[in-house]
Amino acid sequence: MPSLFEMQAGFRAAIAGDAPAPLLGRLHAPASVAGRMEIYRRHHRESFRRHLRGRYPTLEWLLGTDRLLELADLTLQRSPPRAPSMAEYGAALIETLRSCGDDLPPYAADVGRMDWHLGCLSVSLEHQPMALVTLAGIDTLHLPRLRFTLQPGLVFIQSAWPVDELLRLRLQDILPDRFTFEPCETHLQLRGARGAFSLNRLEPDVFQFRAGLAAGCSLADAATRGTQAKPGFDLSTALATLFAEGLVIAHSGENVDV
């Protein structure tokens, strides 16, 4: 008799894609055992397909349902879920999109990234923002080393395509007869909380500054990123706007020795 672990390995293989034959002889039912096994195989496939359709609505709108389902099946095969919450599963589809690059529009992976992040941040929470005046008591010598914690529902995406236009078309349910979609370096800020989201284009320098802070850079390093993107980067204005939009929820680093 196989161990329980071996039996479950066989069952897993039977429902997740491989041939169920080795297991069937050890199962019984008052009908076709293979047919009953197909119930589990179907549920496994369909539940993930349904989930990934829900997580990638713009991509489905763009590629069509059949193509998205093919990609979903491929993703499930290559990167099966490793967490119990379905909500945590599906980011791997972006990698599948990248690996299928030649068969897909060149902007498909970026549309996928946008869909995935919008789904994540729309269920996040917005925290009490910090006021800029809070920084007034900090020694100016320490300011360059400050690090900011930004709102959790905030993501920055850079794309070679204006993928936000596709999202807007989908949300308005507009299918134009002719749509010109040309490459265009786009810097997007996605923000969401409690079931809602917004999407804004940023200037490259502001984008690099904010994305740097979000990645954990110090204020000085984030400012350098802004200046590299655009030599005339205005740190004072960028900082004031960041706080005015309520994006900062905490700061640290003022106690680090200089």
Binding site: Q8, R12, I15, A16, H44, F48, P81
Partner: peptide, 11 residues
């Protein structure tokens, strides 16, 4: 689950 993989079903 089997070996860390979640199968999203009650098997």
């Amino acid at each position: 689950t089997h070996d860390g993989e979640y199968l999203n079903d009650l098997l």
